[in-house]
């Protein structure tokens, strides 16, 4: 598992990268009440806002961590946004992105480095 400075986790699944948010982020956001997902087959660039996530407190964005194509989204989150708080590292993945080269993951933090960041 890799981590971004924007509190996303990245997990490899075949030739795809699965993206979710960390437990730290879910806790900081508070109770999530709304999730808006991107359309599949969308080409995104690193830094694009691809997901809108709203807690009782405020609206936030999840950014595309890398350039690629959104190939699958977790539609369950639309009807059950609370999953983000209940199981941020598992059931509440947001989207799967197809990249040219998985080596793009090398730039991101490992778990120890991420824990230092939020420490």
């Amino acid at each position: 598992m890799k981590y971004t400075e924007d509190h996303e986790w990245l997990r490899v699944e075949g030739d795809l990268i699965v993206v979710g948010i960390t437990e730290h982020a879910a806790t900081q956001l508070g109770d999530v009440v709304f999730v808006e997902l991107p359309e599949t087959e969308t080409m995104v660039a690193s830094g694009d806002e691809v997901v809108v996530i709203e807690s009782v407190k405020a609206a936030s964005d999840i950014l595309a961590p890398v350039d690629g194509e959104i190939v699958e989204v977790n539609a369950k989150l639309v009807d059950a946004p609370g999953l983000v708080n209940d199981d941020p590292l598992g059931a509440a993945w947001f989207f799967k992105i197809k990249v040219d080269d998985l080596a793009v993951l090398d730039q991101f933090m490992d778990e120890d480095e991420y824990n230092d960041l939020i420490g």
Binding site: H7, A25, M43, D48, E49, K57, A58, D61
Partner: peptide
């Protein structure tokens, strides 16, 4: 759908809730 989004975001924990920022 082709092309990339024109929005470039502020990230997950950077936007304001009460007092944040």
């Amino acid at each position: 759908m082709a092309g990339s989004s024109c929005r470039n975001g502020a990230g997950l924990l950077s936007k304001s809730g009460f007092g944040r920022g």
